[in-house]
Amino acid sequence: MSDLVSKQQAAVTLAGDPFSPTRDPHHGHPPHLAHHFETPEQQYSSAKVGMWVFLATELLMFGGLFCAYSVYRHNHPEVFEFAHHYLDRSLGAINTIVLITSSLTMAWGVRCAQLGQRRGLVLCLVLTLIGGAGFMTIKTIEYHHKYVEHVWFGAGNRYSKHYQGPSINEGPFGGHQSESALRMTEGERQEAAADKEMMAPTTQPTESFGPAFVDPNAGTPDESKIKPTQVIPAGLSTRVRPEVGEEVRYEDLPQFEKDRVSTFFNIYFLMTGLHGIHVLVGMGLITWILVRGARGAFGPLYYTPVDLVGLYWHLVDLIWIFLFPLLYLIH
């Protein structure tokens, strides 16, 4: 009897010691409720606000890339109209559908977790994973085509000044997106070289057409530091304005636009690449909750991780919803 009492006393002592390994770690509350929260409800809503703040920073991070895209497209619309022909819009559309479908299965998975349907949750998460893998497979096919056709990023882009690859008339160009109009012939290359020659340091712009630039603030401290290099007559644009329905061809682009074609691919790879990394991270997270869910960790009382990973996955879908028309569907 005295033995039992001493055991009870020992238990009380241990329970009061927060560092004891044998104390009840949850002292009466559900195992998923952290000590610093009053109720599971409070914990759940705190977690969700935290996730949304994180998603907000994600939106802002992609916002920087969308800003670069907007400025570049605004200033060089015909570069986009030319360069987007290298993107396969069927593959882009298929990927959109794949990602939307995986969003549906993810949302359904959250529903299963809420209802405590373990098998449904596992099935939905596996389908979502397959969707993510399918998306990345198609993306890899697209990237591979661009690598093979030397429209890669940086120096791997045939339109880049720093292009290091083989001459574009050689090499293994497949049938994919290989309309001859998209490629420069040897003559065009010479022409482009001649264009560069024109801009060589020996030549000076001798005359500008139109009236000379008049700075209204000349002589004052507000005088503009940057003078326009060329004043063009009002109503004229230096840009190519193809007729409606006419495709922009590389040969039609002025030299300073030709020099910028490779920037389109840099933007494309940066945006879709960062998005692809997010897909991979999302797949990792889904695998994690899949393992936990298969062990029965989630139910109506606790499904926060499933919900938050779902939010992340939907955000990835949401960003692709903007990337697809902006990159692939340029008229």
Partner: peptide, 13 residues
Amino acid sequence: VCVTAMFFVALFI
């Protein structure tokens, strides 16, 4: 939170 992030992205661009 979501709308605020969108708003600032729109403002930025």
